[in-house]
Every structure is written in structure tokens, then in C-alpha cells.
Design a protein around this nucleic acid. Structure first.
Lengths: 159, 159
DNA sequence: GTTAGTCAATTCAAAAATTGAAGTGACCTC
DNA sequence: GAGGTCACTTCAATTTTTGAATTGACTAAC
């Protein structure tokens, strides 16, 4: 499906990247979090070409990330909504925002996150579900399963 | 720099996406978290073309996400390391992993995250820094600043 | 009742990016 | 000195993306 050599990998990161890891897709998802729903608005607000938008929306729908809903029968008109799977991408978008805020910031932050439960504007952060402490870049280490590690040492192209 | 129409946007999400929001870049960063350091290993483990790897590494270095270090003078040989800015992308990678684990999973999880402070294998989660509760997709809402909202309503292509 | 406008697309040629294979240069090992 | 390693570069062929124009099914205004 994707142009890249990332077909069906074992690694869930590689799989996630193959599904939503491109510029326009991430931007579409971002727009959806900002409540953009219609073809023309995506076009207008992202500046992408209509051909590509059309392609990406089809791909995202096929993947179950978004759902197309008719809001008018004649003429046929559609809106796009995130599915549960799509909504669950919020952590990715917020992580990108957090990183952008920290490393690419201008003065203003045009988008803020509100925690509806407590009503506050917040910067959500990653914490350890075990000890409850916030986790930073230095507190974390990736572990590879034994078979995966061996596979990687031997083979070529094992994501 | 990027092929897309995402030059210098106000929105930090759009800026972040412009810097690291493409498939191969995310895969390179992922590999770095798995302690891959050398050109040939990136090539072997990701399956990307050497031309593109070379380009992407140059771009990431120019952006200050990675740093190139000589580990041999003659012949000249280099290793690539994440900078602090690059290491700070860990939350993005983990968010992608979390999403992949949930929505694209096979049986096995070849990569695990260890919290070095408490020594546990964990699934870090986003929490509210204010009330301390875990935040899910439904607990959160995006707020746009007044000027940004107005800009978007009027203009075309305002990320 | 014609003209203009909206909206969700599709079409198509030109431009740009990516692939895949081959090559390069500076070594090291057998 | 033949072959191998490593970090790339080069280049033609393929694939994607862009950008502009067009379509089709309407609705609203004059």
C-alpha cells in the first residue's frame, strides 16, 4: 500500500509508521483533532493538493482510522470523522506538539490541550504506570526480545 | 527543505511534522532508540536506499536531531547519535508504538520499554500534570487561540 | 431561467522524490 | 595483491506529488 518498503513488519512501531507516518497523513489527523471535517476545509487549511487529499482520505478510511459520513444525499456530500482507532492517535499528535513546543517554538502556542475532566489547560506528560513518576528521555531504555535481536543480527531488513 | 508545502508555520505540530514526519525519518529515529549507530546497519535494518539514508541523515544533522561522530580517522568512519533534541523524540516513538501495539498488533511485542529508575518494563502513559489522572482520547479537547482561530476562518493554508 | 457559487472530488501533464543497481575511495586482512 | 569493509555518491528508471483545470450535482441570486 505504501510506497516504502515497509510491508508487514513484526515491529509495531514500523507498522504504525507505515500507516500514519507521513507528513500529509499526520497533518490530516491533526486537523481532525482541531475539528476539521470537510474536504474543502482540509484543502484550504493544509494547502495540500486535492488529488493527494483524496488519496490519503481513502487510505485512512481503508485502514479504519477515519470514517466517511454523508451529511447530504443530494447533492452527495461527505464529512470525515476519526474512528476510535483514529482518536487513539491523539498521544502521537500531542507528543509531536510537545516536541515542537520545546524545540521549534515561536513565541505563541496557537493550540492548547484541555483536560476535560479537570477543566485545565495542560501539557500531558508520559508517566510510569508502575511507580507513577514522570518519564523523560533519559529514564528509558528499549529492550529487544531475544528472537528479535537474533533476527536483526543475522538478517537484512528486519524491522 | 521538505518537499511539502510546510515551510515555517505558526503551529508547532505542523513544524514538528515538517521536521520528522516522514516514514524513513521516523524509522531512522526508531533505530537510534534501538542503539543502531552506523550507516550500514541503518541500511541493513531498515531496507531503505543508501541515497535516501544519506539525505535523511544530512537533514537530521542540519536540524540538530542527530550528531555525526568520527570513530575512526583513517579510513574516515562515522557513527550517528541522537542529540538532546533527538532523544526528546522518544515520546513520539513510544506513542506510535503504543498505538501500533493496540491497533496493529501481532502476538509478540519485539520491543519493550524499560523504566530505568524503577527497573520495570512498562507501557508509559499520558497523564494530567494537574490532577495526575491518566488521560485518554476522550478526556481531551484542542483549544485554538483566538487569533489563530480567526486566521484559520479567513485565510487559506494556515496551519 | 440563466449565471454564479458550493462542494467533493477526478483528470492530466509537468516536476520532484525515490528506488535499485553500480561505482568510489580509503583503508584492512588474508 | 585479491578480496572485504564501510560510508558514502552517481545515475537512469520508476513512482509520487504538484498544480491547474474540469466535472457533476446540486442551490441561491438576479
Amino acid at each position: 500500500m505504501s510506497r516504502s518498503g515497509l510491508p508487514s513488519q513484526t515491529c509495531t512501531i514500523a507498522r504504525a509508521v507505515a500507516q500514519v507516518g507521513d507528513e500529509w497523513t499526520l497533518l490530516i489527523v491533526r486537523e481532525m483533532f482541531l475539528r476539521t471535517r470537510r474536504f474543502d476545509d482540509f484543502l484550504r487549511l493544509t494547502g495540500m493538493s486535492s488529488h493527494l487529499l483524496s488519496q490519503r482520505l481513502k487510505k485512512l478510511e481503508a485502514q479504519g482510522v477515519i470514517r466517511r459520513k454523508a451529511y447530504s444525499e443530494r447533492p452527495p456530500r461527505y464529512e470525515y470523522h476519526l474512528t476510535e482507532k483514529g482518536r487513539d492517535l491523539w498521544a502521537v499528535i500531542i507528543a509531536l506538539k510537545q516536541w515542537g513546543d520545546r524545540w521549534l517554538s515561536t513565541e505563541d502556542t496557537p493550540v492548547e490541550i484541555m483536560h476535560k475532566t479537570c477543566g485545565q489547560v495542560v501539557a500531558p506528560r508520559m508517566t510510569c504506570p508502575d511507580c507513577g513518576e514522570p518519564i523523560g528521555a533519559h529514564d528509558v531504555e528499549a529492550l529487544l526480545s531475544q528472537p528479535f535481536e537474533l533476527e536483526r543480527q543475522a538478517a537484512r531488513h528486519v524491522l
